[in-house]
């Protein structure tokens, strides 16, 4: 699989996640039938900025909780919580179980310790930004969650 898009979704023919260009940095976009799935796929896109998701084992769970005043801020907080966990635990993640209740997010991120020889991490993510930040439902009823991350 390419590191630039995820697998196809039969319903929409659109990839479940993708990167979109930004001059200095990188845009991450997740799609899903539910807002939770879109958030999970945006997290996959975030991880794919760092390394090829195919190489990532999902043996170790990490629990993440965050809360924000609005759904868009919640996406930024969610991605920043992952950036933090990746940095302090020296991990990469491959699978995300997300539940959202109003303004609160609870998730389990599954991953493993980063191994340079196997994962070949290309770049670390400094943080998620409010640039191109959007969480919405498109005309096909698919949820989109996206923003630019600083690398």
């Amino acid at each position: 699989m390419s590191t630039e898009t995820g697998q196809l979704q039969p319903a929409t023919d659109a990839p479940s996640w993708e990167h979109f260009p930004h001059m200095a940095d990188m845009g991450v976009r997740g799609r899903g039938a539910t807002i939770e799935k879109a958030f999970a796929h945006a997290a996959e896109a975030l991880n794919a900025v760092i390394c090829d998701p195919v190489q990532v084992g999902t043996t170790t769970p990490v629990e993440i909780r965050c809360e924000a005043p609005d759904i868009e801020s919640l996406l930024v907080d969610w991605l920043n919580a992952l950036v933090y966990e990746m940095a302090v635990r020296q991990m990469v993640f491959g699978r995300f179980d997300v539940s959202i209740d109003g303004s609160a997010l609870h998730a389990i991120a599954w991953g493993e310790p980063v191994e340079r020889e196997r994962h070949h991490p290309a770049v670390e993510v400094k943080g998620a930004t409010y640039t191109e930040l959007k969480v919405y439902r498109d005309e096909n009823g698919v949820w989109i969650a996206q923003c630019v991350v600083d690398v």
């Binding site: 005043p69 801020s73 930024v76 907080d77 920043n80 950036v83 933090y84 400094k126 943080g127 998620a128 930004t129 409010y130 600083d150």
Partner: peptide
């Protein structure tokens, strides 16, 4: 990076 993240959020409010 984390200070940038923390204060970008706090400065919104």
């Amino acid at each position: 990076h984390q200070i940038g993240t923390d204060f970008l959020k706090r400065m919104q409010a």
